[in-house]
């Protein structure tokens, strides 16, 4: 019996792996274990998404097109796009300087800029309130000029930018760092100013990293929840972005929450695909 069992195992192995034959059986067991664990994780990641799709797809038009959903969608798209644009505007010089120049405290600046990526969004929300809130450091000054930031659409953009801009800076920095400085020197020697050199040489050559950084930032801003709800509140039409609408919908209107969730899944998936397209190395977060 025992000998037969052994022979059967060897028989299977001889057919399943023609390269190794049945020289080292233990390698096969390790592989089976790895495959099993890997399948478990893939299943675990897929199941909730499948469940979401299964529940959301049969929903009536009303779930997708009601006022709350559309308002949240519009607000999210607007604020996320604004955040990405702001990140590009002020993040680009930061990324360039971090990639190109050496200065005192560079490591500190570098770390500070990465910090919001690991900071719990709730902490970001509190911090923003302490800075720009009514009783915040700058809040009083802003009030004097009649500017009230918290619980406005502007606050949504600020919260999203705070949390998402580091993704852009990080990616763009890697992109600028990879552009050979000697190409910029050559441009200068050909009589082209530093400013034009940036637009004609540096930025085009760093474009894949810049674009994928912008996409990452936009996607992260689109999904921002914690900092937004604390700093901007949850007012439909004004500060209620898609994630906030999903949260509210959990109690008030589950169908609408499901619809928004599916939209976010599709958009996120699309962004990841787009990043793969622009940067051959996939995500450049390191």
């Amino acid at each position: 019996m025992r000998a037969n069992g052994c022979r059967a195992v060897f028989f299977i192995m001889a057919f399943s792996d023609t390269r190794v034959g049945f020289a080292r059986p233990h390698i096969r067991y390790a592989r089976i274990l790895f495959l099993a664990l890997a399948s478990l994780l893939v299943l675990f990641l897929t199941l909730p998404l499948v469940a979401l799709v299964v529940r959301a797809l049969p929903l009536g038009l009303d779930a997708w097109l009601n006022e709350t959903t559309l308002a949240a969608l519009q607000l999210s798209l607007t604020t996320a796009t604004l955040s990405a644009l702001i990140a590009f505007g002020v993040g680009t010089p930061v990324a360039y300087l971090l990639a190109r120049e050496n200065f005192r405290g560079k490591a500190v600046v570098d770390t500070l800029i990465d910090l919001p990526m690991v900071l719990p969004p709730a902490v970001a929300g509190i911090a923003l309130l302490m800075a720009f809130g009514r009783r915040g450091i700058l809040g009083a000054t802003f009030s004097a000029f009649g500017i009230e930031l918290p619980f406005t659409t502007a606050a949504v953009v600020i919260a999203e930018t705070f949390v998402a801009a580091p993704f852009y800076v990080r990616s763009a920095k890697a992109g600028f760092g990879a552009v050979d400085r000697r190409l910029e020197q050559m441009s200068a020697l050909l009589g082209v100013s530093d400013w034009k050199t940036f637009w004609r040489v540096t930025l085009p050559l760093a474009a894949p990293s810049v674009v994928s950084g912008l996409l990452m930032t936009w996607a992260r801003a689109l999904g921002e929840f914690g900092a937004t709800i604390m700093f901007a509140g949850n007012f439909p039409g004004r500060t209620q972005t898609m994630p906030l609408a999903i949260y509210s919908g959990l109690e008030a209107n589950l169908d609408s929450a499901l619809a928004l969730s599916l939209i976010l899944v599709i958009v996120s998936f699309g962004v990841l695909l787009a990043i793969r397209q622009v940067s051959p190395k996939g995500l450049t977060l390191g």
Binding site: Q185, M186, A188, L189, G191, V192, S193
Partner: peptide
């Protein structure tokens, strides 16, 4: 500045 030198390389 390099831009003003009229040097080719």
């Amino acid at each position: 500045a390099p831009q003003a030198r009229k040097i080719g390389m």
